[in-house]
Structure formats: C-alpha cells, structure tokens
C-alpha cells in the first residue's frame, strides 16, 4: 500500500493535520486534485505520492504554515545531512555540515 516509508509519513501527516483542524478535507482534495491534473503526470499513477507531497507543501504554504523557501532550504539541509551520515546511523538534521 505504501511503496516507501516517506509515502506513509506524508499520508499520516495529512490525516493528522486534518484531524487537528488545520485544513478541511475538501481543501485537501482540491489541493491534491490540482497536483494530479498537472500536465506530464505519469499515466500509471506511479508519481501519486509525489503529487501528494506537492499538494501538502502547497496547502501548508497557502495557509501560511510552512513557507516554500523555508521548506526548500530544509529539504536541501536534510539531503546534505543524509549524505554526511554514515550508513547505519540515524540521519539527523544537525548532521548537515552547513548547519
């Protein structure tokens, strides 16, 4: 059902935020619909969770909760942290050499 762990986390975060009243499910469906209808999406639906994460980012951006620039900065920071973390050890944000 969840092809990779991050897809499960993205899904659960969305359900959790909705339960906490951060957005309505209709708002969520609209955000997701916008993403899945973008031109160039995979015919087989294999990029479905990419759409999901883009939709969540966009909705949180629109709500003023997570600024797009800030998220992108953190995204790169996590990528640097992952690269700098030896295999077998937990990846933590503070492992980013540029932090």
């Amino acid at each position: 059902m969840f092809p990779e762990p991050w897809t499960a986390e993205a899904f659960a975060m969305t359900v959790h935020l909705h339960e906490r009243g951060v957005f309505s499910w209709t708002e969520w469906a609209e955000a997701l619909s916008t993403e899945v209808h973008r031109p160039g999406r995979a015919e087989d639906g294999s990029d479905y969770f990419d759409c999901w994460v883009e939709a969540l980012s966009a909705l949180l951006g629109a709500k003023g909760i997570a600024d797009g620039e800030q998220v992108l900065g953190l995204q790169r920071s996590w990528q640097r942290a992952a690269k700098a973390t030896p295999h077998g050890q937990p990846i933590e944000l503070r492992n980013d050499p540029q932090r």
């Binding site: 990779e4 991050w6 986390e9 993205a10 975060m13 959790h16 935020l17 906490r20 951060v22 969770f49 990419d50 994460v53 969540l56 980012s57 949180l60 909760i65 997570a66 800030q70 998220v71 992108l72 900065g73 953190l74 995204q75 790169r76 920071s77 996590w78 990528q79 992952a82 690269k83 973390t85 030896p86 295999h87 077998g88 990846i91 944000l93």
Partner: peptide, 26 residues
C-alpha cells in the same frame, strides 16, 4: 552505503521539521 534522500523524501522530512517545531504534529 551512502545515505541519500530523494527530493520527495527530504521534502517530507522538511515539512515534518517545520510542523513539529510549530507543535502541529506529534
């Protein structure tokens, strides 16, 4: 044995970081 985060994987981590800091996700 490289750890590598795909863009989407890292984005989820980033959103989680922001939301946890704001106390919106547990």
């Amino acid at each position: 044995h490289d750890n590598r985060y795909s863009d989407m994987e890292a984005r989820v981590r980033a959103l989680e970081t922001v939301l946890t800091e704001k106390g919106l996700v547990d």
